[in-house]
Design a binder for these strands. Sequence first.
DNA 1: GATATGTTCAAACGATCGTTTGAATTTGGA
DNA 2: TCCAAATTCAAACGATCGTTTGAACATATC
Lengths: 224, 224
Amino acid sequence: MPWAIKVTRVSKATREKIIKAASRAFARDGYDGASIRTIVAEADVNQAAINYHFGSKEGLYRAVLQTALRALMSDDDAPQSGKLSREAALRRFVRRQLRPMTARDELSDYVRIFNWETLKPSLVFRKFMAREAAPFFAAITELVRRFLPDNATDKQAVVGALWLFGQCSIFVRNAEQLAGPPFRLELDERFVDRLADTIAGWAVDGLCQPPSKARLGGLAALAK
Amino acid sequence: MPWAIKVTRVSKATREKIIKAASRAFARDGYDGASIRTIVAEADVNQAAINYHFGSKEGLYRAVLQTALRALMSDDDAPQSGKLSREAALRRFVRRQLRPMTARDELSDYVRIFNWETLKPSLVFRKFMAREAAPFFAAITELVRRFLPDNATDKQAVVGALWLFGQCSIFVRNAEQLAGPPFRLELDERFVDRLADTIAGWAVDGLCQPPSKARLGGLAALAK
DNA sequence: GATATGTTCAAACGATCGTTTGAATTTGGA
DNA sequence: TCCAAATTCAAACGATCGTTTGAACATATC
């Protein structure tokens, strides 16, 4: 492992430049679509630097995923989230998921990288998630569970969490096309705020509804 | 245009073999990820056949998209769909969207190809959709509109249609992972039927709800 | 059966990919 | 200040990509 190197001042700066450029590239083009040469060009470092500092393209991707997961799990902007009502917590989660629609920061890159992986999970990603992402997904599942009956199964909570993810990610993934013709939606902060309200409201309604044959069935129908 | 060739008996068979193999490959790996060499290997034809029959990889992709759109728009299995209630029509749409979760046929490939394109639309795809897909999307939007108030704007209907797409595609995209650990869901026809009931029910609830501040707002909040 | 046209085939081309190499340069501690 | 280690750099390697080529083969028309 020649790339498990000592972290010095100068190498740390290079590593950070590379990770930032790589996050953008992976978010824009996916893991396979992003090339070493475009990453080093945007980071303004030599091509061999990636193999020197991260061992391989896969190693760089692992480092990006670690940075991404750390950022996505941090609640630094609202440390009181544990005391929120379930509705407010859900609204906060949805708004956070929708953030890439307007913001062009690292967090939006991270969300997009995860969206790529939901379409065709790479081997790197699957190993990484199995090892480090359990608490992240558990948090969302627990949030969903607060809306379900006490006797809800794990399966129901997982499906509910995925359902919630899907409602958000479709807008994030299609943001560019929503802004263009023929839709021409004005994707400013106000719009996304209202969209978050809408999605959260629909989700609360859906999750809270007791199952009913007349309504085509509910989540309870998924119990074995 | 040397590839606008006369359609003979033998060339038609080759074209169909290529399109079928290409659909699988594009669905599995995306446009960039699928290689000519794997496609011709699965189709059991010569490598140069693709450029001969379709001009280029892009030309082949266009042909696949045409086949896909034609299949996705056909209502051959239920010609009475025009007479369905809005709830039944919505349930039918959702069930059709979820079909790739169990079925391993061409239709599931087509849905997956479109899912790839929502993540990073290729130039080929954008041109193609702008030219040929308007009626397809209009049909979904009209279905959503049947649940909205009469004075609903186009913008509201479009957002509602996208919202519906997102709820379905998240399960389709993650079907493989749902089947494996730690979820271990048994994705048989019964499960998908119930899932379609659940999603359709939630969607009906969400779309029908009148806007209400107490419920964090509804679709009407998106009107300008 | 001869001929022209449509189709298949193996081989190669140029470009881009991730990675490796070895020397040049910079850095940090004695 | 000096030397060993850390880091950067330009160049090349082998592999894979989409595409082209020109000959070989199959098919249809007379």
